[in-house]
Design a protein around this nucleic acid. Structure first.
Lengths: 362, 362
DNA sequence: TTGAAAGCGCTAACAT
DNA sequence: ATGTTAGCGCTTTCAA
């Protein structure tokens, strides 16, 4: 902790009270309007506060009220573009409610993670929003819950922890059906990390859709790690040595499990002189802004990223309890999602057909 | 503010003291080792704390000690890749010192900005790190300073405010000289926003270097706005209608004022069927990780982004005052920077020659 | 070596 | 309508 900055004694409510010629209580009440005060005194107090440049000390308030306006944000890597829109959604919603966000970039390190969990407890945060649940393990967030901190997950599941859900399987289904509708039959899929729940769900959605269409080929499922380079490599490998199969032809379309890998795949294709979308359609899932900046602009499935952040932010700032137990805040999916639990609130997943997809060449 | 969470009374130092059978004072002293305590009691206290899962309340501590472990981070747009490494540098350094970062994404809105300035004051942050100084205006941060909050800028200048400086002109010079050394003579420059200090410095560096080489052509200075799209457009325009000049030929190389625009320019060239680096060399400035992911990998000038964040973080967490007045923390530049004030600490800018640059074709 | 008392800035009973 | 008292959790004089 830094030295107390000397000389700069901050102006407290005491100063305001003195200048206004009232008691501290009256000053407090007048400023907060938490009880009736005569209009005259209220004005005097407000005027005194303005004159002195008074700003209430939130920490003192937190202490006495025993509720904090601090919210922790646990994120595996703030540089990961997938998180950006989500973070912006969180940040603006939380701020709108008069809360503040404490940023904790764990850098995917278990050690930093647990340090942050401790730190957030000490800071008396009222809630924690955790991105990338698969990082924390079953009980990584337990200490927070036990301390009475409201915890909500975005992406992934931990038993007993509230979360914002989206229908990742539907997102993949939407993309796959779109490619099918364009006339593609051999559609490769660049999968994500096995441990990632969203990646698994998207793979499932892709697989089921192709199985239903009768064109599923296990060999067209390529491994990937969510990053640009792995998408590049997957496409590179595909072009270098197309997987064998019922037909010897290489796929006419590649769906990547996330946008970053689609970007990598796109670049690999272009680099190899393969025309996109003419000779190879490329598609992602996510709808991060960068996809729109590519040339050709990348077709993808737009997930309500900002809205996910907003919902989580609203939840943690909101006083009323949500349905208890393993709470589902928002069931985010296509409106006609088949079966499943009733949606609390259905946010739109939408297809974003852009330049990187077209019907296969004849 | 949320409701106080009932029932979950947190464990305080009072509980620890009671369990250990000592006074609160002794418990405090034992835990902090701030005064001599008998080994026996110390163990009892520590044991009690462990048993109860005690975590000190930092806000209470801040209140009494009058120094906070909160640091505000003002950033125009957390999704801007230029800021990522800087933010990570800040975050890890600040965290290493036991401080926490309050994230404020102003979204380049003046209104949000001033709300945040107020919020940070109320939170009693001990310091604020502000990225993108040009956003805040001469006195946007004044209230913080007046409240005794230590303020430091990364990028840009505000009179009387400490800042971390890098030699942006040198970065551009380095890039330009490199392109000259490859044999390029007609080198276009995609400039950045006029109001951005770094953009102006880089333009200056480019211009002077070419003037020195006797190959400067004003028409080769193209306008840009720092984003990918503007780099794309600049290159697109260049290829569609090469600027007239002493020779009718189009430039053989394009240097962009930042990496994002270079990425856009690269894509435009590739899209137009112009081979990079064969027919057109493309280069950026910044060294953001994304440049390494491109194909071809983008040549650029690596700025010590993480280190800039680290230095700023260290400054705000550090108790000792730095040189007063318009403090210069770290003069970041090439070792042989010509003239200028003496460097407090010189951080390396380094050339990152990669695949997007090569000698011009004959 | 330990503890009692005071107080950081604020708010909420409970008077008046 | 206003003021007095008490106390949030913690640390630090100052006594014992």
């Amino acid at each position: 902790m830094g030295e107390p900055r000397p000389g700069l004694r901050r102006v407290t409510i005491k100063d305001v009270a003195r200048l206004a010629g009232v008691s501290v209580t009256t000053a407090s009440v007048a400023l907060r309007r938490s009880a009736p005060v005569s209009e005259a005194t209220r004005r005097r107090v407000v005027e005194a506060a303005r004159a002195l440049g008074y700003h209430p000390n939130r920490l003192a308030r937190t202490l006495v009220l025993r509720r904090s306006t601090l919210v922790g944000l646990l994120v595996p890597d703030i540089a990961d573009p997938y998180f950006h829109e989500i973070v912006k959604g969180i940040e603006s919603e939380v701020s709108r409610h008069g809360f503040s966000v404490v940023l904790c970039d764990t850098d995917r390190s278990a050690e930093r993670q647990s340090r942050y969990v401790t730190e957030l407890r000490e800071l008396q945060v009222s809630a924690v929003i955790a991105l990338g649940a698969e990082e924390y393990g079953e009980d990584g967030l337990r200490p927070l819950q036990e301390a009475g901190v409201r915890v909500v997950l975005i992406g992934g599941t931990i038993p007993g922890v509230a979360r914002v859900r989206i229908r990742n399987d539907e997102a993949a289904r939407l993309a796959t059906e779109y490619l099918l509708s364009l006339g593609h039959r051999r559609i490769a899929f660049v999968a994500g990390p096995e441990r990632n729940e969203a990646a698994r769900a998207r793979l499932r959605g892709y697989r089921r859709t192709l199985q239903l269409a009768g064109t599923w080929e296990p060999r067209l499922e390529l491994p990937g790690t969510f990053d640009v380079a792995s998408g590049y490599e997957a496409m590179y490998g595909l072009l270098a040595s197309p997987p064998e199969g019922p037909t010897r032809e290489r796929p006419t379309a590649v769906l990547a499990c996330n946008d970053q890998m689609a970007i990598g795949a796109l670049q690999a294709a272009l680099r190899a002189g393969v025309r996109v979308p003419g000779e190879m359609a490329v598609m992602g899932i996510g709808g991060i802004p960068l996809t729109a900046q590519m040339h050709p602009a990348l077709s993808t499935v737009g997930l309500p990223l900002r809205e996910m952040g907003r919902v989580a932010g609203e939840y943690v700032c909101t006083t009323s309890e949500w349905p208890p137990g393993r709470e589902i805040l928002a069931e985010v999916g296509v409106p006609h999602a088949h079966g499943g639990p009733v949606a609390v609130s259905v946010l739109p997943i939408r297809l974003l057909p852009r330049q990187s997809t077209a019907p296969p060449m004849r």
